[in-house]
Design a binder for these strands. Structure first.
Lengths: 146, 146
DNA sequence: AATAATAATTCTATAATGAAAGTATTCTAG
DNA sequence: CTAGAATACTTTCATTATAGAATTATTATT
């Protein structure tokens, strides 16, 4: 069952269309978990600092899969567990995500992020992206996804 | 009066903090209007293709001003009109917005945007950003903002 | 003085969210 | 083999946000 909001397309504008997929309070935090934090399981997402509720997490994971940003594998250690991971479409949000972090670092005083990582993102975003993509590749090889 | 959602800070994560400011269905469309479409007035925003409602537009403009992304000037032709424009903090979302458009162009089939503009954004995003920032500068000079 | 334009605000029905509890399935320990 | 725990959700319900329509306050125009 898919909620109403997951259907509507408000216009043909590229920004509006993208916001229909990722423009809400939670979706990009799920992407962040998969992209930067190495969190690939439902139970671990439930523990995220921002305290997502179980129902919202379930909805967002389903929507991300329906929209082709995320896919899932059975966990090798247990059939009842799943491993979520970003598809190429989802991984390609890394450029957007990196700009988001750069903007945050520039304008939002309170963000907690180690100084050295902050400096890397700020002064060599391409390198940061390269490193992150390599980590995602390594994860995929380990689990033979893609 | 400011709604509850305009206050909460869920964590110190740069992505979460940024989403507290711009992570919803409408905020970045208002930014788009100011950044790319030359729409600076309330009445013109009401006409946007995506059909924002008057109350939501009012809320978002107030929130954008509270968060320092947008400022307003009295319209030179009428005291009852206002001219909204992006602050430096708001304008600096241009890198994020450009990546959003690039991603949309790559993955969302249906987006309507002229082919030549699509090509410019795709192959020379820096040039696209430069041109856009110049247009915003020209607007500001005209109205002597900033 | 009457009418229109503008930037909101108010009202109300509907939709989304959040918190807690419940369910179905699979694993694990005895 | 069975009892209990773990996992991935789903359901329920109270609260909050949103959308659309109507209204208001102010300023401009005729």
């Amino acid at each position: 069952m898919v909620a109403k909001s997951e259907h509507k397309q408000r216009s043909q504008c590229p920004i509006a269309c993208a916001l229909d997929l990722i423009g809400d309070h939670w979706t990009l935090l799920v992407v962040r978990n998969l992209m930067f934090l190495g969190i690939h399981e439902y139970k671990d997402m439930l523990k995220m600092e921002e305290q997502i509720s179980s129902s919202i997490l379930s909805n967002r994971l389903r929507k991300l899969q329906n929209d082709g940003l995320v896919d899932a594998l059975p966990h090798p250690l247990s059939q009842r567990r799943k491993l979520y991971f970003l598809t190429a479409k989802g991984k390609d949000l890394i450029y957007l995500m990196t700009e988001l972090v750069i903007w945050s670092n520039n304008y939002l005083e309170t963000v907690a992020i180690p100084e050295d990582k902050k400096r890397l993102i700020e002064h060599a975003p391409d390198r940061f992206i390269e490193i992150t993509l390599k980590e995602l590749d390594a994860w995929e090889k380990q689990y033979a996804a893609s």
